[in-house]
Write a protein that binds this DNA or RNA. Structure first.
Lengths: 238, 238
DNA sequence: GTATAGTTTGTGGTCAGACCACAGCTCGTC
DNA sequence: GACGAGCTGTGGTCTGACCACAAACTATAC
């Protein structure tokens, strides 16, 4: 009597989770066809599809129509997408206040850059892509949207350099959740060229602090960088 | 030509997200009945159901059968559930290494207790529930499972006291993702009474550091508390 | 023997319809 | 007025059907 009236789609979800935990399913593997899964678990195909839809949004599987090895539902375990959907929708539904999202970014990104700076004292983490993005951002013909996209890439590249997949995915989700606000805020700025120039300088100083191993300086720089932008666009006042 | 071949369930998801963003839907509101939603959006009911399932797992809605005001799909925006599902499944599918989950907990919980300690210097955050949980944990007749459940509650209560919903939900998700590992690890300990007694002392010292406003001490205490347990159960070696 | 074109097969994507369980509401009876 | 039976609207589930698509297969032409 462990499970009373478990819903059909949850049966499917639990079965897949168990298969993952017990090693019967691993990234790259195919799930059985929907019709087979339905028959095996004794549920309808529509219930199977509801569970697969959840797995897809959560970034666990990728589905493709057709035939052959690339078709069907394949375990991919790509955490970014699911995190972004979750955070975006929770912010939209007012489950996550924007201010809390920003504060969490401060914590995570502060920790990321501090960790990178520490690492720089003993080894040389790969920060070339971060540096390349900064160079690309110095192109003066960028639109606001292009600039913000590169800005997002820069922050993401730092997270990736930290090597922590959980922090990277979480940060990407937080970022995408408030992307709309960042875009909207840019429109209300007094002077975009002035702001973007300042952001660039701050990016440079963050990277410099990391490369020279100044953990605390890097942390403070990235935190004031983030909170400064959102204060300027008055997002936290919402 | 903004949307080429958007899948039917995504149409529904986008419509709901837009309604949320534009304020046509707010927490507490009812979604239209599935059949109505299907007709309005020009999709089949099963596609609507796939989208609603996603929203439900993400913690955005709650569904109930029957009739009357409490029936139907209601916006609830409860972030905890979605975060837990996401993290649990990602860990199961090896998208999130357990070591990264633990490291992220170190960052977030360290920040939580440091923030609480700072707050204690100027005001008095409500930490009574945290203290009550600690008292309950001193009951010597607790089983391992009961102790671990209270342990989880203690950490969660600290997060809640911080007032940051995003950090709280994320931390709860991280915790639940590795709950199975924590449980399994407890079985392999040399001496559970000895370990649980040590954990209790650490809890007390964490709370004491917070209440006396020692931010750095609190941060270090909680971090060594967490990493100590996982090192002892050799989870990070996986 | 090879290359091409047509066919078959297996898959997810979608829809329509049916039925059930359930919770509240309505209305008639006492 | 109180109670109960039936009605209504809702989500939960299943079935069957059809489509689109991509690969594998097969037959044909050269």
């Amino acid at each position: 009597m462990t499970a009373i009236s478990l819903r059909a789609w949850q049966v499917v979800l639990d079965a897949v989770e168990l298969d993952l935990l017990e090693g019967r399913l691993s990234p790259g593997d195919h799930l059985p066809p929907e019709r087979t899964l339905a028959a095996d678990l004794g549920v309808g195909r529509s219930s199977v599809r509801e569970a697969l839809r959840v797995l897809e949004v959560l970034g666990l599987i990728r589905t493709a129509v057709g035939s052959g090895p690339s078709a069907g539902a394949i375990i991919v375990a790509r955490p970014g997408g699911g995190m972004s959907s979750l955070m975006r929708l929770q912010v939209a539904a007012q489950g996550f206040p924007v201010a809390d999202v920003v504060k969490t970014r401060l914590v995570l990104e502060g920790s990321i850059v501090a960790g990178l700076a520490e690492a720089c004292r003993t080894s040389s983490p790969d920060l070339t892509s971060s540096a390349q993005i900064l160079t690309a951002m110095e192109e003066h013909s960028l639109t606001e949207a292009e600039f913000l996209a590169l800005d997002a890439q820069f922050h993401l590249s730092l997270a990736e350099a930290s090597g922590n997949l959980v922090i990277t995915a979480t940060m990407a989700g937080l970022r995408s959740a408030i992307e709309g606000y960042a875009r909207a805020g840019a429109l209300g700025l007094a002077s975009w060229p002035k702001t973007s120039a300042r952001l660039m300088l701050e990016h440079r100083s963050i990277l410099r602090a990391i490369l020279t191993g100044q953990a605390d300086a890097a942390r403070l720089a990235v935190q004031s960088h983030i909170s400064g932008y959102y204060a300027e666009t008055q997002l936290t006042a919402h």
